[in-house]
Design a protein around this nucleic acid. Structure first.
Lengths: 128, 128
DNA sequence: CGTAGTCGATTACAGGTGTAGACATTGAGA
DNA sequence: TCTCAATGTCTACACCTGTAATCGACTACG
């Protein structure tokens, strides 16, 4: 099957900020996206437009004409993006072992009590 | 305190491959590093030398003169690098919640039975 | 003592990324 | 209908990254 964006086209950090806006609420116009992201990052409208174009080129976004302008919507689900990035990290740093990542976070004391409790609950759920 | 490489200077993917060799065994000469990494990545010696230089510039490596050449050693611990990258991911994708990352991996069925067992054991250990 | 090999440093160059201005088109209001 | 504002596209440019060739210095062998 013709896979569209398997992972070949990576989404950069700045681009992700744009995606986040659209993952939160879509479709949006370029202006709406800019309103949502530009202030926090100190971007101008032009910057947001560039990022939108690049994301369309990467097939991470799709456009639908709306009068004279475009409505942008994500083509990749946030969950898929998150999964891809997470797996990449686990592969690159922990030899593909998610448990390795956990062990490391634990050792680095990067797990809060809340984290532990939640993970515990999650495990219980999974084991059911 | 004058912090040397708090996180300002990121280590890129290719650079990490070089670091891995030195994390595994250090100090090493440029040639030894190349022997360890170049074949697997299809790199020439020149490429490895460039990466070593950049890592020294980024203060991720330090050099000790050994006759006419250098011995390279890591200045950043692998664990610290792993922690930094992991935290970055958790922040960027899961709002800083490590449990969120776990929940996501679970949902994406990216956790093997072995992972679950190991995490379980780890939790038990932590709770002790 | 000269010459070749070795080694770090310098330079190169294409592609990606962050950031943005300029330009062209077009629709809407005057 | 003419003009202005909005909107997408094109162009720009510096820095980072991947990948590597070349240069200059020094050492060791002949």
């Amino acid at each position: 099957m013709a896979d569209d964006n398997p992972q070949g086209e990576r989404i950069s950090e700045a681009e992700q900020a744009v995606m986040e806006a659209l993952w939160a609420r879509a479709p949006l116009t370029a202006n709406e996206v800019a309103d949502a992201v530009a202030p926090a990052r100190g971007w101008t409208l032009a910057t947001v437009k560039t990022l939108l174009s690049r994301l369309v080129a990467k097939q991470a976004l799709e456009t639908a004409p709306d009068g004279k302008r475009f409505l942008y919507s994500p083509r990749v689900a946030r969950a898929d993006f998150a999964t891809g990035e997470s797996k990449r990290l686990v592969d690159r740093l922990f030899g593909g072992s998610a448990a390795g990542l956990f062990a490391h976070l634990a050792e680095a004391e990067a797990l809060t009590d809340k984290d532990l409790t939640q993970i515990e609950a999650l495990l219980k759920e999974l084991r059911k």
